[in-house]
Write a protein that binds this DNA or RNA. Structure first.
Lengths: 247, 247
DNA sequence: ACTGGCCTTCCGTTCACTGGAAGGACCACG
DNA sequence: CGTGGTCCTTCCAGTGAACGGAAGGCCAGT
């Protein structure tokens, strides 16, 4: 039972998600499990502060001030800024979809994505989470994740397409390959018609902080070329990160 | 006197800004104006929920969950997604810094920015606010802003560089030109060595919802070409916005 | 060993939060 | 033009959650 005021307020914020970006007061109260009167008072306070905005229609949405705050989160602050120009360079050179992802628990969290009009359509959006075993960036992140996370992921390999790897042994084998080769690949394991290459991005101390990936319709001719292009970009990101740190 | 629990919790969140991305408990309490014990309790609750994360160093930072929430804000959700591919196209064609901004009160709020390694260095960051009278996107937003906002801005034209426009009459004249021509320009009014062109982006109902701008070192040869490229992109964004709405 | 910074926990007092109830605005329907 | 259905807003007395001073623990510097 959540009794504290703060937790109730947070429950209200938590009522918003990608499928519920705008909610009426009653919907908010319902989703947060609060009495209407209580929700009303709290929501009032939240919008006065700018955490929520009220639309002309009367619906509430996440406010600008929270958007601002979110930008300060370290997930994005350092990493994303450092990586941004390199993502653009990659995108400019290939016109394919480029991804930057970090590990969030047992999933890959996409913190940046570039894709133009000509790119292969993909599921990922900025802020979305996808399973690690079926994506390029995911496999990279998994290869450098702590033991217990790997175990947990291996025990739950859900099938997404006909090509998704669902046997723990095969995935383990691939993880070993990633560590040896320095890059990971997928072939239509997440969505049909989409293959990917991904490499690790290392921080100042050499630990893997993110994964950089690219999605193309077919790997056959380009695998090696993409892998080295990605590695160059990843190196550049690392350099930017380290030089930004010592100042 | 802020007495409600919620407002105290929000004050804690508000203690973070671009210059204070990581704070110790005591620093947080100090900045939020709360007794240490109180701050401790609230911060504990906030981090349990994921609004704050605690670093190994003991400092608190904005958490992933708030980052997630921020992405749901309408500032960015619709507009930015629709605009993203067009920004890339523009960037790809020019390799100059490309901006997308909306009006936030009397300032221009940058909601997206692309810049590679070769672009002119500029001040703007995603999430930052710059004065409207000294930037290309700002002038566009001002040209379509409500009367009272214009008045307020005109009464406070701070000088940034030697070229900044500080006479209300001259700015008003420029605003008229923007409405007539459909685009705005600046010449080193915000930072030396940087000129810009910007155009309005219209929503489904024809009202101006954002401004799209580009920054280059020199306008002389390219002004007309850039203006029309921007207008094409702005058209495309509008089309995407409208088609996304009726579904 | 001492000083000064942090962080954490405890607990009796008190005051801000609670939420049912009542009222009002709006819409659609018969 | 009532009637039933949304929705939102305001009120207020009772109570339990939040408050914050105080005390104690940890670490680093001197």
């Amino acid at each position: 039972m959540s009794a504290s005021v703060t937790s109730r307020a947070l429950d209200l914020l938590g009522a918003f998600d990608a499928d519920h970006r705008a909610l009426t007061l009653s919907a908010l109260a319902r989703r947060a499990g609060l009495p209407l009167a209580t929700a009303h008072r709290l929501v009032g306070e939240l919008s006065r502060w700018g955490a929520l905005d009220r639309l002309d229609s009367g619906e509430y949405v996440i406010g600008r001030r929270l958007w601002d705050l979110g930008l300060l989160a370290p997930v994005q602050a350092g990493l994303r800024q450092a990586a941004s120009p390199f993502l653009h360079d990659l995108y400019g050179a290939t016109l394919a979809t480029v991804h930057l992802a970090v590990r969030d628990g047992t999933e890959a969290l996409y913190i940046d994505r570039l894709s133009g009009h000509v790119s292969v359509p993909v599921l990922s959006e900025i802020g979305s989470r996808l399973p690690m075993h079926a994506t390029g960036v995911g496999k990279v992140l998994l290869a450098y994740a702590p033991e217990d996370i790997v175990t947990e992921v291996l025990s739950n390999l859900t099938r997404v397409t006909a090509y998704t790897i669902t046997q723990p042994v095969r995935l383990l084998e691939q993880i070993r390959r990633v560590r040896a080769d320095g890059y990971a690949t997928t072939g239509e394991e997440m969505s049909l018609g989409a293959c990917s290459v991904a490499v690790p991005v290392r921080g100042a101390d050499g630990e893997v902080v993110a994964a950089l990936g690219i999605v193309v319709p077919d790997l056959r001719r380009v695998r090696a070329r993409l892998a080295s292009a990605l590695q160059v970009a990843a190196q550049g990101i690392t350099r930017t990160l380290t030089s930004a740190e010592r100042k």
